[in-house]
Design a protein around this nucleic acid. Structure first.
Lengths: 259, 259
DNA sequence: TTAACTAGCTTGTCTAGTCGTGTAGGCGTG
DNA sequence: CACGCCTACACGACTAGACAAGCTAGTTAA
């Protein structure tokens, strides 16, 4: 087992915080590197002379900080260093669509990772109130819903759900699983809705359990949410895209004039 | 006590996840509003017929999602909705500076909360490598460092650290505690650096212990980081501003053309 | 009137177990 | 050699308690 400090009962920090601090220290100084397994819960209970729940509480702390990741039946492992990517404001540039590339794939090519998409589900449904407000339509109006998940180097990093008013989508490849070259935006432009501007609303929060499953996140790892609304040249909202991204994998870059 | 669904033992979700889901639902539909107290742990153990640790695990779940906040000896409370709702791309518009308003204060006026600034510290120091790269200067070159903390309705929501190359700042109010009407950007423009564009890099992560203290964050609450670089009309980087925001308080809004 | 105390609530921390389920490796059988 | 089985060990979920410590309100004493 790796070298760790014993508990200091005169320390005003709780045992579980001391244990968490000792493990955090071991990770920070490199005694435990990315992918290494932490000592098992029973090794730690033996070493520190505490109950298993106390050790679990310490590990929960590290999970919440995103430092480690538990795998059922295998052990607790040090998370590998974040793979940082940047997504520029130009990622929806028309030139990419004209060359037949969807935004995510164009970005992947530039930054150099292997991109993938899976879990595509397309269906028509009545729209929820918050999306309806952004689209400028009535809640319950029919929209085409496209759900998908993006992978980078085989790991899921983002889920995306697009909502397109049914009147704009019907009769186009938007209702198909494969939207064809250039993606949804290319189809909307062909259908007489040349895109003029986007509005993105960015926020961060902790994921729900469902999002944790979809993005294979350990507990305590935050997500970035981006809700993008696309407007055509008449100022009509033609799509709302709600994305949830694993925070560790993203840096969003925005470039705007001072005006 | 508020109305909640009983446990479903045939459900494949664990009891603690069902309890967490029931409470999350109650918050989402408004049965529990911002600031309301959740039923106490003993009320919940009685209602669901489970051990206290199981209820605590459910509440831990909601804490890491940032939905609720526990207060020792008082109870567990629903977190209030985001205060600073949205910061538009136009928040650095020159018209605000011309009217003598700094960005944060102009925003506050528009959205309707009481803004404040404290902990202002100004000093000159050699610049770190990552900031130097953004400013296009050498690591160790002198910069004026301005540290401050922003409050919304009296609660700290953001810390900001600005780095301005010393050659641009010397002899202006930028080296003073009070930068005067319009803030740093107004002074830079007066000093012959009319601003042309900004680049913002947005990311999310868990806070360090120091950041948790400064922003009074509970454990498991993420932060949004925004690093803004300001360029003048010659394309020279004149300021880097590194901000750390309490995620629950912010939605960042960006508006950009499709091009 | 005011200040101190106290009872009863709350959450925080911890113990010492049980049972369930996923993983990996050894070991025999076909 | 390949396959299945068994077993030791890992974490996940849960129980039923314990004591500590913070908060609030009511009561009591100065």
């Amino acid at each position: 087992m790796i070298q760790l400090d014993q508990l200091d009962r005169s320390d005003d920090r709780s045992p579980y915080l001391q244990i968490a601090a000792a493990l955090r220290e071991a990770i920070n100084v490199g005694r435990l590197g990315p992918g290494d397994r932490l000592p098992s819960e029973s090794e730690l209970t033996g070493f520190y002379g505490v109950a298993r729940m106390t050790v679990r509480q310490a590990i929960q702390e590290l999970k919440t900080e995103g430092l480690v990741m538990a795998e059922h039946g295998r052990g607790v492992f040090v998370r590998s260093a974040p793979v940082v990517r940047r997504l520029a404001s130009e990622r929806f540039a028309r030139q990419h669509r004209d060359r037949g590339k969807a935004a995510f794939l164009a970005e992947a090519e530039k930054v150099g990772y292997q991109a993938g998409v899976d879990s595509i589900r397309v269906h028509e449904a009545p729209v929820a109130a918050d999306v309806a407000e952004r689209l400028g339509i009535k809640a319950g109006d029919p929209v085409v819903v496209r759900e998908r998940r993006y992978l980078a180097n085989g790991e899921p990093v983002e889920t995306a759900t697009s909502y397109i008013p049914a009147e704009f989508a019907r009769g186009t490849a938007i209702t198909e699983n494969d939207t064809g070259p250039g993606g949804i935006y290319a189809r909307l432009e062909e259908a007489g809705h040349p895109l003029a501007r986007f509005v993105e609303e960015v926020a961060a929060r902790m994921p729900t359990p469902a999002e944790r499953r979809a993005l294979q996140l350990g507990p305590g790892v935050p997500v970035l949410t981006v809700v993008r609304t696309a407007f055509d040249e008449q100022g009509v909202a033609v799509e709302v895209c709600d994305t949830v991204k694993a925070a560790y994998a993203y840096v969003l870059e925005y470039d705007f004039p001072a005006r």
